[in-house]
Amino acid sequence: MAAQSGKNMLLKLDQSGAGSFLTVAGLRTRALAFNASTVDTTDQESAGRWRELLAGGGVKRASVSGAGVFKDASSDAEIRALFFAGTIRNWQLILPDFGTVAGPFQIVALEFSADHAGEVTFDLALESAGELTFAVI
């Protein structure tokens, strides 16, 4: 398989909650992380006193982050409104030649910064807020 261009990894926001997805403008970097907690079931009778885990137990979560140039596009306005309202909305992260991760996320961090001689940039962090789906492209 050939290497993939990072510009093809897209973060999309469901603008109205009706399935009309809008690509988040200005992003230069994007990241997706999956995590799962464990449920420890070790007791005094565990073989060799080795830790035992409950299969399928625990809580799964996903985090999405991105950083880019502030473009004052329609996606920027929508993101600001969702953050200040604490709204949970459906998002998609498209990984080229791999698949699409989709589901409800909440914006948990929104940061803006600028250098005197540079552009205004922003950082965005999302946390999953329900069950996610994965569809192969």
Rank of each mutant, 00 (worst) to 15 (best):
M1A: 11
A2L: 10
A3F: 09
Q4W: 09
Q4Y: 13
S5G: 13
K7A: 15
K12D: 13
K12G: 02
L13R: 01
Q15L: 09
Q15K: 11
S16A: 09
S16G: 13
G17W: 03
G17A: 06
G17N: 07
G19W: 05
G19V: 05
S20V: 02
F21M: 03
L22A: 10
A25S: 05
A25P: 04
G26M: 07
L27E: 01
R28V: 14
T29L: 07
T29M: 08
R30M: 04
A33V: 14
F34K: 06
N35W: 07
A36K: 08
S37R: 02
S37D: 04
T38H: 07
V39S: 03
V39F: 02
V39I: 04
T42N: 01
D43C: 15
Q44K: 14
S46A: 15
S46V: 12
A47P: 04
R49A: 07
W50P: 13
R51F: 06
E52P: 12
E52V: 09
G57F: 00
G57R: 03
G58S: 01
R61N: 09
A62E: 00
V64W: 03
S65A: 07
S65W: 02
G66R: 03
G68V: 04
G68K: 07
G68F: 00
F70I: 01
K71L: 09
D72G: 09
A73L: 00
A77D: 04
A77E: 01
R80M: 05
R80N: 11
A81K: 12
L82C: 02
F84Y: 09
T87S: 01
T87E: 05
T87C: 00
I88M: 05
I88A: 04
R89E: 00
N90S: 02
Q92G: 00
I94D: 06
P96C: 01
D97I: 02
F98R: 12
F98M: 11
A102I: 07
A102L: 08
A102T: 15
P104M: 02
F105L: 10
Q106R: 14
I107H: 10
I107D: 00
V108H: 06
A109C: 04
A109E: 13
F112D: 10
D115R: 12
D115N: 15
H116P: 06
A117F: 06
D123S: 14
A125Q: 05
A125E: 07
A125I: 05
E127A: 11
S128G: 14
G130Y: 07
E131A: 09
E131L: 10
T133Y: 07
V136F: 09
